[in-house]
Nucleic acid binder design. Sequence first.
DNA 1: AGGATAGCCTGCGGGC
DNA 2: TGCCCGCAGGCTATCC
Length: 284
Amino acid sequence: MPELPEVEVVRQTLAAAVVGRQVERVVVKRPDVVRVESIPQPTRSRGLSGVLLDQQEMVEVQRHGKQLALIGAVRGAVCVHLGMSGGLRVAEEVRPRWEPHTHVVWHLRGGGAVAFRDARRFGGVWTFPDEAALRTRRWSRLGPDALQITSGQLHGALSRTRRHLKAALLDQGLVAGLGNIYVDELLFAVGLHPRKVAATITRIECSRLVRAMRRLLSRAIAAGGSTLRDYADADGRAGGFQRQHRVYGRGGQMCVRCRRNLATETVAGRTTVACPSCQEGAVG
DNA sequence: AGGATAGCCTGCGGGC
DNA sequence: TGCCCGCAGGCTATCC
């Protein structure tokens, strides 16, 4: 469920708590959630901790699409992907409610800790020698970030595929950051049907799509993201954007625009809600 | 080759 | 009340 807005809110709240702080000790409770992409020689002897920013000052928390990265002052970049059920939490200590499924804990010098928790383990942690390696080996597979992509870039990507528009927008290799919630909200906002063929989107439609995408994601970030079940930021605060959803989770209810019933169907293997009269261009 | 789909994994809500 | 089933979904692997 964490999509770009939720991940960005986690990034901001996490950065406020950890930038400038030094990692004193790393506890890995479930080693299999940590994927070591390459092992710098000097740290090999310290095992997993050595590649998880142990003894490093954290200088930055970055985000690309739905992925986060903790950057060490001297070396080390740790990519955290929250997947569906993942979360990062800052606390003086890991609370009992957070104990189950907590896989990695970074204890900070001077007190406090950051915990990575992920019940379903669709997410994980990937370690790299530095930021450049993270970008080359992992983030290079992602398309431009949804808040940065230009209309020209998106139109170029969409024009090359006959997939459904929704499937294309969910493809992180085309544009990074959208998930099921925000794609449905976006397509309703611009009045395009999820089952429109991606390549039929005109430059003008794509321009509207990109403007609506920036507006939607920015408003969601400002609202603290969408909390459906248990999403919260790094300080444990829930978001409020779910109250502004116009189609997601509202199948069968009234369209806020035309008052007809919203339809639920499966598109790109995902539950999809759209208004049959306000969103045009469906095929097959 | 590219697109659709299954499977990973756990929690939770609905129905009986 | 309690149990079981199905669904939720980001991403990778596999099939078509």
